[in-house]
């Protein structure tokens, strides 16, 4: 009796309490790890297909090498993380961990469905955004702590780029929040049951998408770690699991931004599939996930199409194009509010 009670209590806690389920399972850690493995594999596969190659193949050959990334992950786990003598040890070791953590935490705050959400707050959108801006600081810290010129240059680039994309990111989200008159993600999604955000304010959507690409170093904005220029940028000195965390962090961030994009502009869990609720209260949230996945696939496909911009050109994109676009999106929102009310 006692044991089964404990088990059912545990199951209830883990699977039916949104405050626990969201951070751990969906849209949190477990989803993220599974997605990481899948999306990096897919990125390599897509690039390979465009480039007349096969890509990863030999690990689980029948399934197209889908377990290749699991093998890579295992390798990173057990590879010796080399810590050079000249680095600042605390920054060098804590940096990647904190970077991954800060990239992941916003995911825990995203709602799975209207009722099932880890964080209930009128300001949940603001909280997610605020947390998103934390990660680049650790990028700069590890570059500085690595005590390597290439790392330093890489993190300086990261710093410059952050300057150029953060304001458009905030402004474009603000624009969509203005239209719906709320800073609560759940409320914004609920209001999109009639009209998606991308239709109400396409400028804000375009800006946000570009910002997502820049802030997660997707091509053509893969600038901070530009291999042929500065080796791996801030990550030059890293190896083993620490490098694995660093590499994962940008994908996690991309995942969070894609989810946010799906929630803010693509109608979130609408059209809602109600029968899924019978399986699990969070299951209708899969609609958001699929939308986010489409965005991510587009993002990784760009690797096969674009070279990379120079840092000054990316900053120019940030200030000349994205900043202007985000201001425009605000004006557009005002116009929409004025017209529609």
């Amino acid at each position: 009796m006692q044991v089964s009670e404990i088990i059912s209590w545990l199951i209830n806690l883990l699977f039916y309490k949104p405050e626990v389920f969201c951070p751990i399972f969906y849209p949190g850690l477990v989803t993220i790890l599974a997605l990481l493995i899948f999306i990096i594999w897919l990125e390599r596969k897509i690039a390979a297909k465009v480039q007349l190659r096969y890509g990863p193949l030999y690990v689980t050959r029948k399934a197209g090498g889908i377990l290749q990334l699991l093998a890579d992950l295992l390798r990173y786990m057990f590879q010796e993380p080399i810590i050079p003598k000249t680095v600042d040890k605390i920054a060098f070791i804590a940096g990647p961990v904190l970077l991954f953590a800060t990239a992941y935490v916003p995911a825990a705050l995203l709602p799975a469905t209207a009722e099932f959400t880890g964080l209930r707050s009128e300001l949940s959108l603001l909280a997610v955004l605020a947390l998103l801006t934390l990660a680049p600081i650790f990028d700069i810290i590890i570059g500085w702590g690595s005590n390597n010129k290439f790392s330093l240059i890489g993190s300086m680039r990261e710093g410059y780029i952050v300057m150029s994309y953060e304001i458009p990111m905030f402004l474009s989200t603000l624009a969509i929040a203005m239209v719906y008159g709320s800073l609560n993600i759940v409320e914004i999604v609920e209001m999109q049951s009639r009209c998606w955000g991308i239709l109400l304010n396409p400028i804000a959507a375009a800006t946000f998408l570009l910002v997502a690409l820049i802030s997660t170093a997707r091509f053509p904005f893969e600038i901070a770690e530009a291999e042929t220029e500065i080796v791996m940028g801030p990550y030059t000195e890293y190896s083993g699991i620490l490098y694995g965390l660093l590499m994962g962090a940008s994908y996690v961030k991309f995942y969070v931004l894609s989810m946010l994009f799906a929630l803010l502009f693509l109608g979130g869990w609408h059209p809602s599939i109600t029968w899924l609720e019978k399986i699990h209260p969070a299951a209708p949230g899969l609609v958001v996930f699929i939308k986010a996945l489409i965005i991510m696939v587009f993002g990784i496909f760009l690797r096969a199409v674009y070279p990379r911009f120079r840092v000054d050109q990316a900053i120019r994109v940030g200030w000349h194009l994205l900043f202007m676009l985000s201001m425009l999106s605000i004006a557009y929102s005002l116009a929409v509010i004025w017209l529609v009310g």
Partner: peptide
């Protein structure tokens, strides 16, 4: 579009 074309096209040189 060119990238997308090769995403669905057949040729592989391996």
């Amino acid at each position: 579009l060119t990238g997308a074309k090769y995403l669905v096209a057949k040729p592989r040189m391996t």
